[in-house]
């Protein structure tokens, strides 16, 4: 079990099932740099592989760069998939980040 990032052909003994849940981007500014940073930090706390999926693409939940390619605006529905021993806890923690609007106060445009 070295190189955990290499695509492995061996179909694990621990039958790492993939769990998933839907999340909705509800903060007004969408999944911009700061939320992506928070999300990647949260995802990295877990052992499981974590991916965010929209209609057309998948992003590595642990990579800010990847997450930003989703360009997920407010209202976007995404599926979070977690594969690994702590998948359930990871999904819960990530879902809660979305629900808490990434701690963003809905800022009025400075004018």
């Amino acid at each position: 079990m070295m190189a955990d990032s290499s695509p492995s052909v061996h179909s694990g003994d621990h039958s790492a099932a993939t769990m998933s849940r839907e999340v909705v981007v509800i903060n007004a500014a969408g999944l911009h740099a700061r939320p992506a940073d928070l999300l990647a930090r949260e995802a990295r706390r877990w052992q499981s592989r974590i991916e965010l999926v929209n209609d057309s693409q998948r992003a590595d939940g642990k990579s800010i760069l990847d997450l930003l390619t989703l360009a997920a605006e407010a209202g976007t529905r995404l599926v979070v998939e977690a594969t690994g021993p702590d998948a359930r806890e990871a999904l819960e923690a990530i879902g809660s980040l979305f629900e808490r609007r990434f701690n963003e106060h809905e800022d009025n445009p400075r004018s």
Binding site: G30, L31, H32, A33, L68, T69, L70, P109, R110
Partner: peptide
């Protein structure tokens, strides 16, 4: 512009996609 969060997201998308 403050009222165009979508444009900002799409610029970030382009930058991050290319920089991968």
């Amino acid at each position: 512009p403050p009222d165009r969060p979508g444009d900002h997201l799409r610029a970030l998308e382009n930058i991050s996609r290319q920089l991968r």
